[in-house]
Every structure is written in structure tokens, then in C-alpha cells.
């Protein structure tokens, strides 16, 4: 059995596939429902004659809400699953088992990285399909092409997030520490993204990009940040492989 089959077994037998799929599916089903019933919920909870008017739900606002949840909850579950998979040295004796058998440090990182990336993207696709279906029947039609483009940008965000987790995994040992520092770094990037001149370049701009794409924003607006994110992910992954090779247990 090689590392690739082992990583598929890991995702499957540790139920991480269920955690990923469940979170993205719940977001995909839940957010369009919430957007659709938001005005009724607000109206029912209004008291003392105060009238709060919610905006009329549109397909774009439904997908934007989905994108926003993916950026938060989806990213969190991706980071946790990534940290649990990539924190190789969290169990030293197990790490010794692998380290004394692999030919190159990349054999230790790449299969884990790719497995988390592929299964997270699959879960994201399932979430997008759920959101598309719910939005179409409750609110209105959504362009499948726009969703596909949006998925591409969201997948780049997933790639960047997991590469960041891999980089932290090469520097820290505990799963909790890797997850915490990864989340902290993503939050810091998010804060940097609020600075006007940097907003178009911070990878966090991709985290909820599916909403604006469906809303009519040109994909060209995400070209710069896509390049930055791709280069950043490759650099982070390269760093992780370099560090894990030099690191002692």
C-alpha cells in the first residue's frame, strides 16, 4: 500500500470526509433557505410596531450568503481537517515510522495535501450544487457557468488555505497549535484585505468570491489575487516540504 491509497483511507476511515461534506452540504442547503425566509422571520420577530424591512431575496444574495458561510465555517473545517492530516510530527513514534520509510520529504506532505484538497473541493462542489438547487427552486435561476467560475476561485482559496496549514505543520507539532496559527494567519490576511490598496491582492478576496461572480462581477477582477494565491500556495507548500525534510522530531 502506498501513500496515496493510505491518504484516501485516512480521509474515509477517520470520517473526515463526512465532516467536510456535512458542513458544506448544510451551508448549501441552509443559506438559501435562510435568505428566502429572512423577511418572514424578521417580520414575525418585530415587536412594538417597529417594522424592519429585509431586502428582497435574489439569486445573487442567496449565493453571496452561501459564499460568506463558506469563507467562515467552510474555511474553519478545512483548516481543522488539514491540521489533523498534515501535523505529521504530532505523534513522534508514528512520524518515525513514516520518516524511516519515505524516500523524499515530499512523499510525506504531497499525498496528504492533495487528499485534503481534493476531498474539500468535492465537498465544496456538493455544497454549491445544494445551494444552486435550493436557490433555483426558492428564489430564482442561477447561471451554472457563473457557479463553475466561482467554484474555480473558491477552490484556489481552499488550495491556499491548505498550503498555509501545511506550512504551519512543518513548524509546529500539535494539531491544535497548527489549526490555531493557521486560523490566526487567515484572520490577519483578512484584516490586511480591508486595506484598500491591498484588498484586490489578499487571498482572502477569493474566500467568498462565488457571490460577486454570480452577482455579475467580472472574473477578470480576481485575476491578480488568483495569481498571488497560486504563487503563495506553491511557495508555502515548497517551504513545508523543505522544513519537514530538515526538521528533527
Amino acid at each position: 500500500m502506498g501513500m496515496w491509497r493510505l491518504e484516501i483511507l485516512r480521509i474515509w476511515r477517520t470520517r473526515r470526509i463526512i465532516a467536510l461534506t456535512a458542513v458544506f452540504l448544510i451551508i448549501g442547503i441552509g443559506d438559501p433557505l435562510l435568505v428566502h425566509f429572512l423577511s418572514k422571520l424578521i417580520a414575525n420577530s418585530s415587536k412594538n410596531g417597529v417594522i424592519v424591512v429585509a431586502p428582497t431575496p435574489t439569486p445573487a444574495s442567496s449565493i453571496a450568503s452561501f459564499g460568506s458561510s463558506v469563507a467562515q465555517l467552510g474555511t474553519l473545517v478545512t483548516v481543522v481537517v488539514g491540521a489533523a492530516t498534515l501535523a505529521i510530527d504530532s505523534r513522534p513514534a508514528l512520524a518515525a515510522f513514516y520518516r524511516t520509510r519515505i524516500r523524499h520529504p515530499r512523499d510525506l506532505i504531497l499525498p496528504r495535501f492533495v487528499a485534503v484538497l481534493v476531498f474539500t473541493c468535492l465537498a465544496l462542489v456538493i455544497g454549491i450544487i445544494a445551494a444552486w438547487y435550493e436557490t433555483s427552486i426558492l428564489i430564482g435561476p442561477v447561471s451554472a457557468a457563473d457557479l463553475a467560475v466561482g467554484f474555480g476561485f473558491e477552490a484556489l482559496w481552499v488550495l491556499f488555505s491548505i498550503a498555509l496549514v501545511a506550512a504551519w505543520s512543518s513548524m509546529l507539532k500539535s494539531v491544535l497549535a497548527v489549526a490555531a496559527w493557521s486560523v490566526a494567519t487567515l484572520l490577519a490576511l483578512s484584516l490586511i484585505g480591508t486595506i484598500h490598496v491591498l484588498s484586490a491582492w489578499s487571498p482572502t478576496a477569493l474566500s467568498s468570491s462565488i457571490g460577486p461572480i454570480v452577482g455579475g462581477t467580472s472574473p477578470n477582477n480576481f485575476t491578480g489575487v488568483s495569481i498571488v494565491s497560486t504563487i503563495g500556495a506553491i511557495a508555502l507548500l515548497g517551504f513545508a516540504i523543505f522544513r519537514i525534510g530538515r526538521r528533527e522530531q
Binding site: 500500500m1 501513500m3 493510505l6 477517520t14 513514534a93 508514528l94 518515525a96 520509510r101
Partner: peptide, 30 residues
């Protein structure tokens, strides 16, 4: 190269593998 095996004092393996799979992984990775 690659023919030196090491067993730590407290061995640890993926808890979701069977012992046969552990041996399969061990030989397969090399």
C-alpha cells in the same frame, strides 16, 4: 540505503488500520 529499520520504544500506528495493512504500508512505502 533503505535497509535500516528502526523501532521506537513505544510503537505507534494509524489506529484505523488493521495489523496486516500496517505491514502492507510498511513494505509498500519502501
Amino acid at each position: 540505503a533503505g535497509y535500516t529499520a528502526y523501532c521506537p520504544d513505544v510503537a505507534e500506528f494509524e489506529p484505523w488500520l488493521s495489523p496486516a495493512e500496517v505491514l502492507e504500508v510498511s513494505a509498500g512505502l519502501l
